[in-house]
Simulated assay, not measured.
Amino acid sequence: MKRSHRLVALTNFFLENPSEHVQLPFFVETYKAAKSSISEDLDIIDEMFRHEGVGYLQRTPGAAGGVRFIPSASRDRNKAFIEKLCNQLADPTRILPGGYLYMSDILGNPQLVREIGRIFATAFADTKIDVIMTVATKGIPLAHAVATFLQVPVVIVRRDPIVTEGSSVSINYVSGSPQKIQTMVLPKRSLAEGANVCIIDDFMKAGGTIDGMKSLLDEFHANVAAIGVLAEADDEEDERIIQDYVSLVKISKLNMKKNLIEVTSGNFLQD
């Protein structure tokens, strides 16, 4: 195999298998090349990944050493994307009756959702995460995007149990404005005891839903390793239950009478 062909094959492998640790003998056998040649190829690919701002190759020495691709978007790339996202969300035609914000087109766009997943994977690259958790339904695409880059499974919290998922753990929590009691359930087989969980949600006001998921995780003796939200509302900041989280955009003002939305970047870009 020519080096140019091998470089394409290796690049495709890493992009298709992010965060997966692979020992060098696998590449030596697969591409019938010397270990030194593979090592040089990895240097070239790592340099280009960093140049393009999409991530880098993490190398580990020793007998059990190998390499894995860490998706990690550059700050400039993330900033440009988040600014674009803010502009899209600031469209006043997104205002819905009741003061809600229409976001389904963004959550239904595979390219946008994939880039959002890459950003959260960047934020949590150094965090030990065993599983991604979200609540049905709008957070599901985001959770799967993050899980794809981190190579971990997704568990979905639902409002009602599903008979095909077996016995479930159920809790009541307070959410919404005005506040009301709601229920969320999670199948007992979804989580292993002591699992490190990353919670992903599409929108957060006071944080009641996420706080409910944290309480549900207590029932499984699981740990909240990270929390990521696509958009947060700024008008209830003083009453916010959740403090330690990463947000991409912030809805600073939503005025139905003036047909006005102000959207700024979230805390992800803060130094």
Rank of each mutant, 00 (worst) to 15 (best):
R68G: 08
G66F: 02
P71F: 02
R75E: 12
R59Y: 04
G62R: 07
G62K: 00
R75C: 01
G66L: 05
E83K: 09
A63V: 10
G66C: 07
F69H: 11
R75P: 05
K84S: 15
P61M: 05
R59L: 07
G66V: 07
V67D: 11
C86N: 10
S74D: 14
E83N: 15
F81P: 08
N78G: 10
D76Q: 12
P61W: 02
S72V: 02
R68L: 13
Q88G: 12
I70H: 04
N78K: 07
P71S: 11
A80K: 15
F81T: 03
I82G: 07
E83S: 13
S72H: 15
R68K: 15
R59F: 06
R75M: 09
F69S: 12
P61I: 03
I70V: 15
S72N: 10
Q88T: 06
A63H: 03
G65C: 09
A80F: 05
K79F: 03
P61N: 07
P61Q: 02
A80M: 10
N78L: 01
R75H: 09
E83I: 00
R68M: 14
R77N: 12
I70A: 14
K79E: 15
E83C: 01
V67N: 01
A63R: 13
G62N: 06
S74I: 04
